[in-house]
Amino acid sequence: MEEEEEIKTYLTFTLSNELFAANVAGIQNILEMPLITPVPKSEPYMKGVSNLRGSILPIIDTGVKFNLPGSVVTKNSAVLVVKIMLDNEMIDAGLLVDSVSEVFEYNKEDIIEIPSVGVTFNTKYLDGFVKYKGKHYMLLNFDKVFADQAKQNVLR
């Protein structure tokens, strides 16, 4: 059992020419660019809402959220539907990414610690790096991305 857990499957995607990977366990669905209805006067990183099989899916402009420059919607753009924890509640959210590339398996032991220098991206959202086919991918942790937001709004 334990050895199986060590091997995880990752999905790679790009955002502003940076290479990312995320554990597929956290990804519910990958949507080709859906129709997005913008919500007026919302946070800049909130791209709008979409119809996901009859429910309303909030779409996050991941590039803006991560402060990466120059993310544009193209025909390669896609939305990763993920479950995130917000105020102790699981909600669905769509992450807009520039393109989705491939899926690979990786051993947990091979995750490289985050180097302290040379990373342009805010490292607090990352679990580390993995090297695959000669390229480095940043391992994104969705829960950490949204943990910031969760902090503020709790009634209980």
Partner: peptide
């Protein structure tokens, strides 16, 4: 339907 917590 609610817009969800992200649009609070």
């Amino acid at each position: 339907k609610p817009l969800g917590k992200l649009y609070r």
